[in-house]
């Protein structure tokens, strides 16, 4: 069987298009690459959606945590503490069994026990908590002069936040936020190992890599391929976030721009 045929059969296997049965017997390198690459669709799906939705929630949380009103501050603090203080793995398990219980109460919760929604919600809440902490830190280090200048122009409330506070916050938080995005994508590999079932063997990249490793008992082929895909993905994230960083800093003279110095800070 030619490689092109394999790609046709298994390229979209992870979302249920193409050959129903997974390859058997002697696995070719092409099958490894195609099926693991097909699994990456799920990693990207979880990562991108959680990142976009989490971004807005994180902004709200950061503002709430920085609020002087106890009513807003305390819930935000607790939310961030709970999601940052416990392992994501346990959060997945807990959420899955919680949704299972709820399913018994009302059929509305049926889709929540499937990975595409249930795991996405957990990732969304988790990344919101981590990003909120980053944004909160940035919010506190906004130069005093910027806010005073906004006041002097007669800005307050929403316009001040929208035009002064928020862009500066993003600019300061961006390098750390890039780091968070990279680790969010890494965290998506946990989904199919934490209770959420891979229905009809539709799994993510790590799910297929483990499938190959279990079948061939040879970890030296599938895992490096997975690593290859993820390094590629990391480079893409760094590139895209770098572009956004350049845009956020475009008004500054070149030497004052925040360099994208990426440091490994947090994983969950």
């Amino acid at each position: 069987m030619s490689c092109l045929q394999t790609i046709q059969d298994y390229g979209l296997r992870s979302i249920g298009i193409g050959e129903r049965l997974l390859p058997k017997g002697e696995f070719t390198l092409c099958e490894h690459f195609t099926l693991i690459g097909s699994g990456m669709i799920w990693n990207i799906y979880f990562g991108v959606l959680a990142l976009i939705t989490g971004f807005f929630f994180a902004t709200a949380l950061a503002v709430a945590k920085g609020s002087s009103r106890r009513l807003f501050r305390k819930p935000a603090e607790w939310f961030i503490f709970v999601f940052r203080g416990s392992p994501l793995f346990i959060q997945f398990f807990f959420a899955y069994f919680l949704f299972l219980q709820l399913k018994g109460v009302h059929p509305f919760f049926d889709p929540f026990t499937a990975a595409w929604l249930g795991a996405l919600i957990v990732l969304f809440l988790n990344t919101a908590a981590y990003s909120a902490e980053i944004f909160y830190g940035a919010l506190r280090s906004i130069p005093k002069g910027d806010i005073e200048a906004a006041d002097a122009y007669g800005m307050s409330g929403w316009p001040r936040f929208r035009r002064i506070v928020w862009p500066t916050m993003l600019r300061l938080a961006w390098p750390a936020y890039t780091n968070e995005a990279i680790f969010l994508f890494h965290a998506t590999t946990l989904v199919y190992f934490s209770g959420f079932p891979a229905w009809r063997q539709k799994g993510d990249a790590l799910y297929y890599a483990t499938y190959f490793a279990d079948k061939t008992f040879n970890p030296f082929v599938p895992y490096p391929i997975l690593a290859f895909y993820f390094i590629l993905l990391t480079l893409v994230i760094v590139g895209v976030f770098g572009l956004i960083n350049a845009r956020l800093n475009r008004h500054l003279p070149a030497e004052r721009r925040a360099k994208m110095r990426l440091r490994l800070r947090l994983i969950r």
Binding site: A187, T189, L206, A213, P219, F230, L264
Partner: peptide
């Protein structure tokens, strides 16, 4: 550098067999 780019659980699953 390599741990930065690759999910840690992939490492766990890899090293245990390897």
């Amino acid at each position: 550098a390599i741990v930065r780019g690759v999910p840690d659980i992939a490492f766990f699953l890899f090293f245990v067999i390897a």
